[in-house]
Structures are given as C-alpha cells and as structure tokens.
Amino acid sequence: MTRISREAENTVNQVIVYDQSKEQADGISNEGEHAECEIRSPYVQIRVLWEELSLLGLTTEAWVMGGDFNAVTSTAERKWGRLPYRTAGNEFVNFINANALLDSTNLGFNFSWSNRRHGNSRMLQKLDRILVNKKWLDAATGWRSRILQRRFYDHSPIIGWFTSIPKPHNIPFRFKTHWIKHESLKVLVKKSWDEPLEDIPIRKTMKKLKRLKETLKIWSWETFGDLRNKK
C-alpha cells in the first residue's frame, strides 16, 4: 500500500511519498521507504510535482493521496472571487487522468477552503481532497471520504473510512449456553483440565485455559456442526 502526504510551509511545498516497492524516480532523493522533493513555485513549477509522482509508477499498486493540492479541477470547485488559474487546474486534471485516479471526497461540504472573509471579498474553494485508484477501491471495500465543517482554520478536515469492516481473524472465544445441556461437556472439560502440564502456577492456568478453548472449539464443530449457517 502506498501513502502520499503533502505539507506546505510558506511558499515551499513538500511532498513525501511512502511506497512499499521503494521505487526511485529521477530528480527525487530516495531514503529508505520515502522520497522527498520540494516545489518552490505553487503555479509555475507545480507541474514538476505531478511529473515526479507519475514517474514513480504507483498506478501499478493500490494507493491513496490526500491533502491540500492548491488547485481546483473546474470552475464549479470555486465560489465567488476571480476565476481559478486555468493552467494549474488543467495540469492537475491531466495528472489525475494520466494516473487513473478518482476523487473519493464526494460527501459532506462542497468546499474545503475559505479565505475567512465576508461580503464581496469572500471566496470558497475545494482545494483539499483524497484521490485513489481503482486498486485501492478494490482492496478497501466501501471506501468513502467526507469534507467536514471548518471551525478554527481556513481548511476543512477530511476523513476517510471503510463502510465494510472486515471480520478480524482473532475472534474472542465465547462459551455457548447450549453446550451446558450436552451430557458430554462435563467429561470433556474435566479430561482437558486434568491432563498434565508443567509450568509455574500462573502460566499453567493460562495454558490450560487456552488448551481447553481449542478443545471446546473442535468438540462444538464435531457435535453441533457449523453454527454460522444455522438460524
């Protein structure tokens, strides 16, 4: 899985790419599991950012990219104020299309940034979003993301989540009440508990409980079958 984050400080945009394949592109310094590059101009040299990321070849794996991109994809993503910078928007759209990315941030508020002004000077834009590719959507069943309400800053927080949570492999053991009615349960428990086991007292008790749990699971399957398919 690949994770990309973007941090901005003054006029310098820093992009950090985390890639499990540890691939390296020309013009990006690669150290360990991350690569870094700096873009000095948010408008003239921002195309270098898209080119460097595209060269990493991340479209072959499931990946997600989120943050403040400082660009809109259309005039519909800006409300009030002057028209958006067309070149920056077109290059951002080209990057999205070239890497077969999808904007998953389609829930919540329409705009993620405000200049915090009022009246004729007010401006709203969708600068923040989460981009994913198809392999990410296939791996992350039910993936959704939402723009939340702004409270203290000019940017809105964005949250992403899975609507379908996979069942954990290590499911807690549960004693079934109908087991008590079975005549062989008491004999089974006594036989498992009385079986010799060498260790200090506290660890001996824990090991016996673990052994009994596995014994009961096998016994339940052999006696009652697969209870998950029974109503």
Rank of each mutant, 00 (worst) to 15 (best):
W136I: 07
N110D: 13
S21R: 10
E33C: 15
F175V: 11
W161R: 14
G57I: 00
L131P: 01
K176Y: 03
G142W: 01
S29A: 08
F109T: 09
E214A: 11
N99H: 07
W63C: 04
S145E: 00
I158W: 00
C37Q: 01
P84C: 04
Q125D: 08
E31A: 11
E33R: 15
D128L: 06
S41R: 12
D226W: 05
F95C: 10
I165W: 03
S29C: 11
L55Q: 13
T2E: 06
D19A: 05
G67V: 01
R211T: 04
E195A: 15
G66Y: 02
A139D: 08
G142T: 01
S54K: 14
D128Q: 07
L197F: 09
N10D: 14
V187K: 14
G27P: 10
F92M: 11
G67L: 03
T87R: 15
N10S: 15
R3W: 10
W219L: 02
W143K: 12
R211P: 05
S74H: 03
G66F: 00
H118L: 12
L216A: 10
A139R: 10
V44A: 14
P172S: 07
V72S: 00
A100K: 08
A25E: 02
I165Y: 02
K126Y: 01
N10R: 15
I96K: 07
F152R: 12
K230T: 13
F69K: 07
E198W: 10
R228Q: 13
R40T: 11
K126S: 01
R174H: 09
Y43Q: 14
W219D: 00
M206E: 06
I180G: 07
G160V: 01
V72F: 00
H155W: 04
E52N: 14
R47G: 12
T87W: 03
I130W: 02
L185P: 04
P172Y: 02
E214T: 08
G32L: 02
Q14S: 14
S192Y: 02
S121G: 07
R211F: 06
I165C: 08
G119I: 03
V12T: 09
S121K: 12
W50R: 05
E7A: 12
L131K: 03
L212D: 00
E36W: 07
T59D: 13
